[in-house]
Simulated scan of single mutants.
Amino acid sequence: MPPSSPPGPTASAPAPTAPEDNAPRSLRIEDWLTVIVMAALALITFANVLVRYFTNSSFAWTEEISVFLMIVLALVAGSAAVARDQHIRIEYFAEGGSVARRKLLARFGALMVALLFGLIAVLSVRVVWDDYRFGETSPGIGVPQWWYSIWLPLISALIAARAIGLFIRRGRQAPPADHHGDFQA
């Protein structure tokens, strides 16, 4: 009896591709930041629950730090979504029409995201400067407010850079195949 070959793709069948194959390899930054921020949120919340349970009081700083970390998490996740081309869009318009139209809309969307977050990055620098110049402190624990606000222009610039990268990648490749006929009987 001849040995059986393991199941899997044959030489003539192309290997399946992951949906993130067209995303940049440098997404590890966003992925690791997401893991670190989520772990910090979980640890802070768990520590606060334990303290409340055993002492009937809580850490005063946990709410302020948790809100900051959730904002950072949303921005980092937004950056990863843009880089992976999984940002929000109206599928009816984005997936309909000719190949050229879909490619044009994909590039237009990436350009608008880059413009929006570039503008946010530039304008929020003024907020950071004002926080620093006027010595604003956070309401909960009294640390300098710019420690929190400095992350908005930085991560917004990252999102804008990711959107520009997406714009360039969309210009180099054909849009996804038309899926409108997939459900025919």
Rank of each mutant, 00 (worst) to 15 (best):
Q86I: 01
H87R: 01
A121T: 06
V113R: 09
H87I: 04
T45F: 06
R102M: 02
I159F: 09
G135Y: 13
R126F: 14
S149E: 11
I150P: 03
V128K: 03
I65W: 13
Y132W: 15
W61G: 12
S79C: 05
F59L: 10
W151N: 10
T55V: 02
V143W: 15
A157D: 05
W61S: 13
F68L: 14
A110Q: 03
G142I: 11
R126Y: 15
Y132A: 10
A160L: 03
L43P: 02
V99Y: 04
A161Y: 12
Y148M: 07
V143S: 08
M38G: 10
A77H: 10
L152T: 15
T34A: 10
S98G: 10
S98L: 06
Y92M: 11
G140A: 15
L105Y: 05
V37F: 14
P153G: 02
V72F: 13
K103A: 15
A163P: 11
V76M: 04
Y92W: 12
R52H: 11
I141F: 11
S149Y: 07
I155V: 15
A39N: 00
E95T: 07
F93A: 09
V35N: 00
I44N: 06
R133V: 11
G96W: 02
A100T: 14
A114I: 06
G96H: 08
G142C: 07
F108R: 08
Q86T: 00
T45W: 02
A81E: 03
V82L: 00
E91A: 08
R102Q: 01
G135W: 12
S124M: 14
L154N: 06
V76T: 07
F93D: 01
L105Q: 02
N56E: 14
N56P: 00
V67R: 09
W32V: 13
F68Q: 12
A47R: 06
I141K: 11
S138D: 12
E136S: 12
L115K: 00
P153R: 00
F93W: 14
V82P: 01
A81V: 05
S138V: 11
M70P: 00
I90K: 03
V76A: 05
S149A: 12
D131C: 07
V67M: 09
L43R: 01
G109H: 09
S66V: 05
Y92A: 13
S156M: 06
L50W: 06
R101G: 02
S57W: 07
V67Y: 09
A83W: 03
R84Q: 11
G96R: 08
G142Y: 10
N48Q: 01
T45E: 04
V99Q: 13
L75R: 04
H87G: 04
H87N: 06
E30F: 15
D31H: 11
A160M: 03
S149H: 14
I164Q: 01
I36T: 14
I65H: 10
I150Q: 15
S66W: 06
A80E: 09
S57M: 05
V49S: 03
P153D: 01
F108Q: 05
I141W: 13
D85K: 09
D31K: 08
V49R: 02
A83N: 03
F54C: 04
L33Y: 09
F134L: 12
A114S: 11
L123F: 15
R102S: 00
S124Y: 14
L116R: 01
F93T: 07
W146T: 03
V99C: 05
G97H: 07
L33S: 13
Q145M: 14
I36L: 15
V51F: 15
P153C: 01
V82F: 03
Y92N: 12
L116T: 14
